[in-house]
Design a protein around this nucleic acid. Structure first.
Length: 276
DNA sequence: CCTCTATGGCGAA
DNA sequence: TCGCCCTAGAGGC
């Protein structure tokens, strides 16, 4: 479930329950037990997301770094016995936050945090984030834009769903090289990511379909998928595009399935020479 | 029971 | 480019 909006929501929810309060911290599963003991009964100062990373600061100076990876999750529920493999639990006697399946859950120093932040591009969810560093990389790159969007050094927080959807919404083929984009096209992508990801934060799911293309507006059946949101192309390969009726395609790009409509998103020109 | 997949990312080769 | 790590749920046999 975790693209940047998910981490942003988790940080916000951690703060709303626990910020400024003493918390109990444990590791029912055991793999974080020693570190958890150092945090137990400390005050949770604040939680912050950066792209797909999460940092939780405690009043005793300890700092936890979490990355959910592909399948990790952090859920909140009324305090009860842990179910399954809970690597980290934070609770206040009423509400428990349970972390499972994360690829990273570790104590880090402030320097460690800075090192993580230093290798992240601008995060569309951070208010006032400057897209220029992302553009500086993209405009010089021969790599496909579909690959660049998933590179966290270029942009932080964008995952496979937002990649597919933002490219569709802006009619850009994922195999176009970064350097073939105009600055205007890039800024449209950025602005759209800011819009979509904030909407993701608001709704708690990735929903990218414009009002005029919703099932109700088009009198079509709602899409059936298990991730909850309405999308144009993500995991709709083989199905018809709702705009043009073309068949949605998929292909591996940056190690992940990329989805696009070959009619709405024109192919890259082959070996397009660099134009200023 | 088994295998596969999933909104990620790392390091070895 | 590949294999691997994390875990759970779905589907096949």
């Amino acid at each position: 479930m975790p693209e940047g909006h998910t981490l942003f929501r988790i940080a916000r929810e951690l703060n709303s329950h626990f910020a400024g309060r003493e918390v109990r911290v444990c590791s029912p599963q055991g793999r974080f037990a020693d570190s958890a003991a150092l945090l137990d009964r400390a005050q949770l100062e604040c939680a912050e997301s950066a792209g797909k990373h999460l940092f939780i600061t405690f009043s005793n100076g300890h700092l936890v770094h979490i990355h959910l990876g592909l399948i990790g999750r952090l859920d909140f529920h009324p305090l009860a016995d842990p179910v399954g493999e809970v690597r980290l639990r934070i609770h206040d006697g009423r509400t428990a936050a349970d972390l499972r399946a994360a690829t990273v859950c570790e104590l880090v120093t402030e320097g460690g945090r800075q090192a993580v932040l230093a290798r992240l591009g601008p995060d569309p969810l951070q208010p006032g984030a400057d897209p220029q560093p992302a553009w500086d990389r993209i405009r010089r790159s021969d790599r496909p834009v579909g690959e660049l969007l998933l590179d966290q050094k270029v942009l932080a927080g964008v995952g496979n769903v937002y990649r597919a959807e933002v490219l569709f919404r802006n009619r850009i083929h994922p195999l176009r090289s970064g350097k073939s984009l105009t600055r205007r096209q890039f800024l449209q992508l950025w602005d759209d990511l800011v819009l979509l990801m904030n909407e993701g934060v608001r709704l708690g799911r990735i929903d990218t379909v414009r009002p005029e293309h919703t099932p109700e507006a088009m009198a079509r059946p709602p899409r059936v998928d298990d991730h909850g949101g309405e999308v144009y192309v993500y995991r709709r390969n083989g199905q018809e595009c709702w705009i043009c009726g073309g068949r949605i395609r998929t292909e591996q790009l940056a190690g992940r399935n990329s989805f696009w409509c070959p009619r709405c998103q024109r192919r890259p020109r082959t070996r397009q020479p660099e134009l200023g």
